[in-house]
Each structure stands twice: as C-alpha cells, then as structure tokens.
Amino acid sequence: MTTMTTTTATSPVLEASGVTMRFGGLTAVRSVDLTVNSGEIVGLIGPNGAGKTTFFNCLTGLYIPTEGKVSYKGTVLPPKPHLVTNAGIARTFQNIRLFANMTVLENVLVGRHTRTKEGLWSALLRGPGFRKAETASRERAMELLEFIGLSHKADHLARNLPYGEQRKLEIARALASDPGLLLLDEPTAGMNPQETRATEELVFAIRDQGIAVLVIEHDMRFIFNLCDRVACLVQGEKLVEGTSDVVQGDERVIAAYLGTPFEGAPGDEEVAEVEAAESGSGAQSTTSKEGSAQ
C-alpha cells in the first residue's frame, strides 16, 4: 500500500460538539467537545467510569446523544451504526467481537459488505456483477491481511489465532470498510509488551495510509508514545486536552489516576453507576426511541 499525502492535513475529520449522554438521572458524558483532524492520532484516557466507552458509543451511533452533535467531514452523523460505518467511521471494541468459527479471510470479508453494491438478487443468481465484486472484495481483504501480517493465516479459523493476532484481525476487519477515521477501544488490553509494540507500529502505519485514529487506552506509555494529542475524561467531563507532555504533567490527571480526591471528583458510587451504564445496562431505553441502535 502506498502512503497517502494530503494538502488538508489539519482539516477536521471528526467534530463532537457538546455531546451529553444521560441514562435516566445519571449523566455519563457531559458536554464533551472533541475534534480529530486528518493525519492525527488522538488519545482518550480517564479512570474507570469516566465515560470513555459511552462517548465512543455516541460517536458510532450505538447511543443517541441526549444533547450535542457528532459530525464527520462536516456532515452530522445519523444515529445508526451501519450508517455511521457507511459514512466512513469504523471501530473495534474492548471485548474482541470476531466470528470465531469463520476463517480469518471470511472475517475481513464481513467488513467489506458496506462497500459492495451488489444486491440480493445478484447474490442469489451469482451473476457476472456479483462474481466481479466478490473477486475484488477477496483481493482487498488479502491486501489488508498482508498489511497486518496475517495473510499466511487467511484460511485459519479466527478462534485458533493467538490473542494478539485476534486483535490485529479485528482491526483489519474495521479497515475493510475503507474508513477515514478508525476508533480503537483499548486495542492493547491483555497484550504482552511485544504485542503492544507491534500494535503501536500498526497504528502508525494506519495513520500513514491517510486514516485518522481515535484511541481509548489504559496503557499510558502506549498512549503517550502514540498520540499527537490526548484528552482526559473524568466523571464524563473533559478535564484537559493537549500534547502528551501537557496531559502527563497536569496534576488533576495524576490525582484522578491515583484516586486522590480533588474538587468535583466523583465518589465510588457515581463511578460504579457510570461503569454499569457503559456496560450496556442503560442503553436499551436510550436507543428504543429508534427501535434499535444495532
């Protein structure tokens, strides 16, 4: 793959403005603004219960924000995950969500479906248009497996891959939708140092392809080495945003991670409530107004 260059390196890809998410009487995310520009890797950190995953879910259409808006390249995103993917945003999840009994190649092909134009009848009749699209999809999927270093395991079942390679495969599947922005939710969770380093190199390579990246991560060394900018959420609010040096040196960030109380800090009960909301317990009533957010 060739590295893409652009003359609009600072143009906004993602703009979240005043995003607020409430679950009943609990405010999990409160008036968060965040911009990700083309060519950037931006990190989102914060202690458990800070609202990071809830914010991610608002960006990807899983949740409909109670207030605020999310725009991709200047267009407000519809609150439906498949439409957000169609627009150009892809994501991975904290818990790996591969199709365990499908092959590595088949998992990536699933990610291609948003970029294929063939309809039901074409698929059923398997006409020339379908066969051409299928061939193109397989070629693109193999390119992505080569890119992440798994082309030699294309025919292996996903469940048989080592943990680190399963994480890579999930990233490849997200890339298969040809996104302009990739959201990574704790991509190094459970990894050893060698796997973490390989993931860091992979994210840099993704950025070099012209894809902006927004990443949630608890590994501070990873996030500060990786990111151009970092934003820290505490109790659903953006506490600070800036370069790695600025954020690392902020006493409020240090206090939040050490569990040291500071003015306005959440109590244990509030943290537990936000963690429960992020796990999905409050999502059903929120998304029911659209029938389903899935």
Rank of each mutant, 00 (worst) to 15 (best):
V203Q: 03
N225I: 00
A172P: 06
H152T: 08
I171F: 15
G129H: 15
D208R: 12
M220I: 00
E139A: 09
E201S: 12
R167W: 10
E165K: 11
L150R: 02
L184D: 13
R221V: 04
L144S: 09
R167K: 12
V215M: 08
Q209Y: 04
F130S: 10
E170F: 05
A198M: 10
F147A: 04
N225L: 00
S177I: 07
F147K: 03
I216R: 02
D219F: 02
I148Y: 07
K168N: 15
A212L: 01
A176C: 02
A174D: 14
I216A: 03
L169C: 08
G190A: 06
E170W: 03
L226P: 07
L145A: 10
N192V: 10
A172G: 04
R221H: 05
F130W: 14
L144H: 02
G190N: 08
P187C: 11
L169H: 13
L183V: 12
S151C: 05
L169R: 13
A141H: 01
D185R: 08
E143K: 10
M142L: 14
T199H: 08
I211E: 02
E200L: 15
I148N: 10
E134D: 10
K153F: 00
T135K: 15
M142E: 04
I148V: 15
F130Q: 13
E170H: 12
G149R: 12
R140C: 09
